[in-house]
């Protein structure tokens, strides 16, 4: 077993980073290809309740893993000496002129895209899905609300699939760092 704190920190940062990535990618796959189809096996009213419960819980996992990914990435880079406490804070290895730097910055940009998509789902699409009808709503109002919910559900599905592709591409970029980066 390692005896020095330095090595332990190296392991802990890598572990947290790997677990967060696994939860993000594996969670998206399980939601899309396992829980989604399973939802179709029960009556629609119950499926809607199940959909809301699973999505609410999954969003916690998404935000938790996105936060953990960036925090652990920062500490890993700092631990490897790419980020310092002195101006300009970034070492030359992270410059855009280097393959390693370009790959890291592309990963960061894609992480930002995942966050934006997560925010759209959490603060715009999910409330639309969960919206309740008020007493006295007209038939046209009910239909419009159903239409809006179906649209929101479609967009959530599209964004989740796009996120999955982006996350796997980030994993590809991350894997390439061992060999100096891909871009």
């Amino acid at each position: 077993m390692p005896t020095d704190l330095d090595t332990w920190l190296h392991i802990v940062y890598a572990y947290l980073h790997d677990i967060a990535i696994a939860v993000y990618i594996g969670g998206a796959v399980a939601m899309e290809f396992v829980l989604g189809p399973a939802q179709g096996s029960i009556p629609p009213a119950q499926a809607q309740v199940m959909g809301q419960k699973t999505a609410d819980r999954f969003l916690w996992l998404v935000w938790g893993s996105l936060s953990l990914i960036i925090v652990s990435a920062f500490f890993r880079l700092q631990h490897m000496g790419y980020i310092t406490s002195d101006w300009p804070f970034l070492e030359s290895g992270l410059a855009l002129s280097e393959d390693y730097g370009r790959t890291i910055w592309t990963m960061f940009a894609l992480w930002c895209v995942l966050c934006v998509n997560g925010a759209i789902m959490t603060f715009y699409l999910r409330p639309r899905l969960a919206g309740r009808l008020k007493a006295g709503t007209t038939a046209a109002g009910v239909q419009a609300s159903q239409q809006a919910k179906m649209e929101a559900a479609k967009w959530i599905e599209r964004i989740t699939r796009a996120d999955l592709v982006i996350a796997v591409f980030i994993a590809l970029l991350g894997a390439s760092l061992k060999w100096g980066g891909l871009l």
Binding site: A22, V23, I25, G26, V29, A30, V34, F58
Partner: peptide, 15 residues
Amino acid sequence: WAIYAGGAVTMEWVL
């Protein structure tokens, strides 16, 4: 391993 471990966490935590 991401699909495997992440899937196991999701099944436990979400399902």
